[in-house]
Amino acid sequence: MAIIRRRGGSVSTTSISFPAMTLSYIALFAWTFVVLFPLYWLAVTALKTPLEVNAGPFYIPWRDFQPTLDSWHYIFFDLREDTFRPYTNTVVVGLTSTAITVLLGSMAAYGLVRMRYRVGYGAIASFVVALAIAVAVVVAGGPWPLGLVAGIGVFVLLLQTVARRWKRGVGNDDIAFWMISQRMLPPVATVIPIYIFFQQLQLLDTWAALIISYTAAHLPIVVWLMRDYFQSVPVELEESAAIDGASPYRIFRSIVLPLAVPGLVATFLFVLVFAWNEYLIALFLTSANAQTLPMTVAAQNATRGPQWWYMSVLILIMIGPVIAMAIALERYIARGLLVGAVKG
């Protein structure tokens, strides 16, 4: 069995006629304009003085207005630490949480696609009972670690005894739906409980708090997306590898993951984008040290109204690294790089 790398360009299944090509380009350039014009506006706003923004609209630097780097100077020199500190935090939290999320999420997604899970109603009932006991302990005034231990103890006990008899249960699709349903509650309803959660763990204002929250928040998305990519990987390959004696972990690492690279890359990109840009949780979990950039952006609207010029600079420097990442990763989404002729 071998996977042969093939150049993307070599697979030309459909040749494109000239009118079709012209129409395609018209459509593509039209959307490019729609996408780029607001960004252009951002870029010129970052070069304007407040006066020029408020008296506008001015479009072209040097012709309509004299560009100035005042706003850039303010962000990089006047704010200095207040720009670089959140920047570092954003990079660290974004990359770490994304890497963990994509790893754990892909594993779970693979499990959901290739294995059969059956969670017995008995197990679920045990969990609910254990949870109720834990909650009761805390409500009655006990410390939360005691509630946690009591809950886990009861859960294990029930699982080993009562739950064994009750065989019917929920399957893979239900587990997947349960996961995605965790994203249905708007963050405004969960942010204070999450705050208390980390306050109890004494993790407020740390990278860890943000990384853990983002991992938990974005896992369902990774699971769902990766599930579909794994489904499209031919199962025959894995079967033959299993016959050759490869362990499930090895199959996952050496066969499945490489084959799903386009999906992995796409998923990685927007989980990164989500973590990079998250606002509300970051606002509450951080104060002096771990603040991230979205807060700096939002903070440019204070008592004097939105400071468009500073905001534009901040948005531009914020998307810079993500764009670089997208350019670097884009080629992995290209057809035929890894997926393609597979002979085994």
Partner: peptide, 20 residues
């Protein structure tokens, strides 16, 4: 320590109320 203007009130209150 600075936080965005729009959320200062909630942030302060949460900090006080949870005895953080």
């Amino acid at each position: 320590i600075t936080v965005p203007f729009s959320d200062l009130y909630q942030k302060l209150l949460t900090d006080f109320a949870t005895k953080t």
